[in-house]
Design a protein around this nucleic acid. Structure first.
Length: 410
RNA sequence: GAGGGUGUAGCUCAGCUGGCAGAGCACAAGGUUGUGGCCCUUGGGGUCGCGGGUUCAAGUCCCGUCACCCUCCCCA
């Protein structure tokens, strides 16, 4: 029979990797809770139009990367390619805005994009993310960025922070219009990719690495001239807050995000240690998105981080306690061994009962391979062996042995 | 969507100008009565990614195909 293999771009996460996965998620979750964010578990499947209307009709994500299909009821649905759209949809649909105040949510889980797999890039990948709804103050921007920084610090991950402002929706639209006009004029000196970008993602042209494009855009209109006083004020405040929090950053005026919904603040945490896909966490403000999706006018912001990319940067996992191994010396003691293992587990001790029959020697090898800290030999006179030192002690009954063992590992 | 690299044992890889498919690690069983690691002995393991072609003979040469990795693009 032919072996069935996993689908391209999808992966099994097991062994060391699943420990890293859990470590990253648990660490982030802990920070989220310290910032008093509430978890929301969002569906993996949404109406396609949710993403068209939020991420943007013309973006690569919507144009060529979404897993779209018709369900049995003829509905056009998509596996979610990102989390913010769903969070906004839920915010509106669950009428959270009616509860007053503001809302801070975090989520975790799989996202799906049909891209060419690469280092740090999969078709099913996993993100942690958070969103804040109902706050326009840049205090929120600063706190969100600080929270991401806290997560990275807790994971012992170094990444540089780049920030930028895109301005409010109106001034950005105006800027994009003027920029497009300019780019069309210099189109002939642009690279092939950038010519395509003029319509699809004109801001990205400014960030092109090709020398000709850099040359051609040197005189291009700059966004800052189009920003409203309010946007400039907000950006200045954000920088002031970050300075006072001791969060280092670099202003990158060419930083653009690939999703259409961003306004004003955008930021990225970037590393060069994991290959070409160096953006490890990114986010920004999206003050018009809630309204755009049919909710009340609500300022909002958020971020997402790629769990797989964080995993690549995690170096030292916290050390785990080794198990105690319970081993019946001969099979007549299987029942006693089952009972002993049960008692140890009741005491909260990580216990491996050797399930295999065979020679004592082979089962000892197994205990060693499992990484036993102690071995409990179950027989008439139970014995406890310290696998580190090789010392072995005999007991009159299991109760005494368990007491001593609890003393040692409890 | 475009480009480059790699596919041989469970893993990491050798295999020359075509001539009996290998090593290390891992695995299993032993090295005297009921005790691991180190060492020694023995053993099990392969559609050489898949399909075609050239040849007396193909892991090796040719064509096709698939998968994985990396890069561009894009993004977390």
């Amino acid at each position: 029979m032919a072996e069935i293999k996993r689908v391209r771009g999808f992966q099994d996460i097991y062994g060391e990797n699943v420990k890293k996965y859990r470590y990253v998620v648990d660490t982030a979750r802990d920070i989220f809770k310290r910032y008093n964010f509430s978890e929301i578990i969002l569906p993996y499947v949404e109406d396609v139009s949710l993403f068209i209307r939020s991420v943007g009709e013309e973006t690569d994500i919507v144009q060529k990367e979404m897993y779209v299909f018709e369900d049995r009821g003829g509905r056009k649905v998509a596996l979610r390619p990102e989390g913010t759209a769903s969070a906004v949809r839920a915010f509106i649909e669950e009428r959270l805005y009616a509860k007053g105040g503001y809302h801070k949510l975090f989520y975790e889980g799989a996202m799906f994009r049909h891209e060419r797999p690469q280092a740090g890039r999969y078709r099913q990948f996993h993100q942690i993310g958070a969103e804040i709804f109902g706050v326009s103050s840049p205090v929120a921007d600063a706190e969100l960025i600080k929270m991401v920084k806290d997560i990275l610090d807790a994971l012992n991950i170094e990444a540089r922070l780049e920030i930028n402002t895109l301005g409010d929706f109106e001034s950005r639209k105006e800027y994009v219009r003027v920029l497009k006009e300019y780019l069309k004029k210099v189109e002939n000196s642009l690279c092939e990719d950038c010519r395509k970008r003029i319509e699809r993602n004109p801001l990205r042209v400014l960030d092109c690495k090709v020398e000709g494009c850099r040359e051609a855009t040197r005189e291009a209109p700059v966004l800052i001239d189009f920003l409203s006083d309010e946007s400039i004020e907000r950006f200045e405040k954000l920088k002031e807050y970050l300075n006072n929090l001791g969060v280092n950053y670099q202003v990158n005026p060419r930083l653009v995000r690939g999703l259409d919904y961003y306004t004003d603040t955008v930021f990225e945490f970037i590393t060069d240690k994991i290959g070409a896909q160096g953006t490890v966490a990114a986010g920004g403000r999206y003050d018009t998105l809630v309204k755009q999706l049919g909710g009340p006018d609500t300022p909002a912001l958020g971020f997402a981080a790629g769990i797989e990319r964080l995993m690549l940067l995690v170096e030292n996992l916290p050390i785990e306690r080794k198990p105690v191994v319970v081993l019946p010396v001969v099979s007549e003691f299987n029942i006693d061994a089952l009972k002993v293992a049960g008692k140890l587990r009741e005491k909260g001790i990580k216990t491996e009962l050797i399930l295999k029959e065979g020679s004592l020697k082979s089962r000892m090898k197994l205990a060693n391979k499992i990484g036993a800290e102690y071995v409990v030999f179950v027989s008439e006179k139970p014995e406890l062996k310290d696998m580190e030192t090789g010392e072995q002690e005999q007991f009159d009954n299991v109760e005494n042995l368990i007491d001593v063992l609890v003393e040692k590992v409890g």
